[in-house]
Design a protein around this nucleic acid. Structure first.
Lengths: 141, 141
DNA sequence: CTGTGTGCAAACACTTTGCAGGTGT
DNA sequence: ACACCTGCAAAGTGTTTGCACACAG
């Protein structure tokens, strides 16, 4: 897939094996991944540090975004097309859902965060909404 | 304040100096505190470990609740009266606000989380909503 | 060739666990 | 008296930093 190559290029990132494979993992999974998940699923084992730095770089460049987790750990998910405009500015006003059964966190791209009325004087800049429960796959029990 | 003593008693917790002081800190601050914050503000220095265990116990007993943080760290805030019923069951359906200026995270007890329509098959059990922006005090610039 | 990415080692921060002794009730 | 809390030491986990070398453009 030269799709990955052009994606990296779009975001001013050099094409390296490590980045290609990490990006490939994110594109093949529909749920958020923690650093550990990425490391485990990497076919060739790259250095732990490299993975950390790659994720950091991806976030800075806007390829992926952080996803809140109730445990306190950090997870990441791919930014979809509607995540950014031409200026690469992001608006992540979608809901994240964590299934308490399978443990996976997914972006509910179609569920947007409803408007909120904050108290006088509060200015809202960013919003993170994490819903926990049972996902559609696990709920079939 | 024997208020603290009775509060500890209410939650089946022994009255100790450490717990009293930690609880006192939470009651005197209106914002969420990380473990480090608590440790720093403790007048007498108790062991790091004791603070960890105390916080853990408080959460288990329902005195305080975890507050999501965008950084991944864990913060805690006092549960208000409306947090639990007679059976000590919690419902934290209020919004948390983190000010990007002063860095403080506060519970907006009066702003409740709006209803959400999840996709077919998803069951919602718990919801965490973190809003980031500028709080009323910092916005006066 | 030049700037950036990678690997290795080490440091650092955060949190948990085991055990011995002290304390609340 | 007994159960529970605390402190100390140590280990476990997650993340960052410095430096030398390798590699992409």
């Amino acid at each position: 897939m030269s799709q990955i190559k052009s994606l990296l290029k779009d975001y001013d990132l050099r094409h390296t094996e490590c980045r290609e494979e990490i990006l490939d993992i994110f594109m093949s999974k529909s749920h958020a991944l923690a650093h550990g998940d990425v490391e485990t699923q990497l076919p060739a084992r790259f250095d732990r540090v490299t993975v950390y730095r790659t994720l950091k770089t991806f976030v800075e460049k806007g390829l992926i975004h952080k996803v809140l987790d109730d445990e306190g750990g950090t997870k990441y998910a791919l930014c979809k097309d509607n995540c950014h405009g031409h200026d690469h500015q992001h608006h992540h006003d979608h809901v994240h859902f964590k299934c308490n059964d399978c443990g996976l966190t997914t972006c509910l791209e179609n569920v947007s965060i409803p408007a909120l009325t904050l108290p006088q004087g509060y200015k809202r800049l960013e919003t993170n909404l994490l819903v926990q429960g049972i996902c559609d796959k696990c709920g079939v029990s």
